[in-house]
Amino acid sequence: MGFRRYIIRRAIDSIILLMITVIFNFILFRVMPGDPTTAILGRSGSPVYNPGEYRTRLIERFGLNKAILPFIDKDFQITPDLNTLIDNQFVVYIQKLLVGDLGISFNYFPQEVSYLIFGHRLLNTILLMGLSIVLSFLIAILLGTLASSKFKSKTDMTLIFTTLTSYSTPVFWIGMLIVFFCYGQLGILPYGGSPRIEEYSDLSSWGLDYLYHMIGPLVTLTISFVGAWFLIARDQMLGVFTEDYITTARAKGLKERRVMFVHARKNAMLPMISVLALAMTYLVSGATMTETVFNWNGLGLLTYESVYRQDYPVLQGLLLLVAAVAIISNFIADLIYGLLDPRIRY
């Protein structure tokens, strides 16, 4: 049937896109200006007794001339001839990537990038983002349905104004307000941080404290996501309500509940799937702003640290992960789309 061909076509598209991403990621971190070793030596604050020797060690450890960064040879000079090196580097880069080696972090030397990313940070981010995405998605759809069924009423207008306001508010500032009121003034929430399981005697006490710390960032993110998604949900429902088949369904004398939930919702959900697919990337990219404000030790905070410390290997790894998840979740969204909407399969 057409459906199989549709899947295959999408899969090929996704694989091509994935390859382009890998190449793009390789190039991006090689066109930047400046000399990374200087950045490390200048920033890390390590006691540098002998800069020359330290550089040699850096290059040995990181493989700066091969796997990570170009332009530098053994004498720490910027090489004018790029071509041979780039070829060589690209091969090494791909080889290492295939065995899951993303290099070694500058900042958390000598930890590996893959260890930094695929550890408790990823878990923290997935838990926080997953929960807030699900919560916001449900709230947005509920409010969107409510607003569209009372088109242009007071409820509708109030909801629009409120969500536009939250859309216009920087998410980190909402976080700052929560810290200010709930920690600084009232003292009902912790300042921040994400409790690690190793520091607790049993699972339940960790779980409770974890959730307690999660309230602040969770509320912040939910306010901001609902602001972004409400109008989309409302618009979709409105669009569907004006469709002819909805009029027909009503003329058929079906119960209004059936019209809303079977005929309208099914169609309005289709575009919302793309929204959800987009949100999947947040699962791994994390919310840099919110995590920074609340000191939530996830991938978003890692991104911030890595930019701050110019930890290129980690940034490269993060970017690759995010892009890969983006492509894969888009592919899955296409599949669901194809299953739900029979027209797409052709």
């Binding site: 598209d13 896109l17 382009i20 991403t21 991006l28 971190f29 066109v31 930047m32 200006p33 697919a277 987009l278 990337t281 947040y282 990219s285 840099t288 702003m289 978003g300 991104t303 911030y304 890595s306 930019v307 110019q310 290129y312 940034l315 993060l318 970017l319 995010v322 892009a323 983006a326 492509i327 979740s329 888009n330």
Partner: peptide
């Protein structure tokens, strides 16, 4: 359009941060 789809997928802020780190 493939390019557009791809860029829509990528979360903006982390990407901006990477660019700021580079440039």
């Amino acid at each position: 359009m493939r390019l557009t789809d791809f860029f829509i997928q990528l979360p903006q802020l982390p990407l901006m941060l990477v660019f700021v780190a580079l440039f």
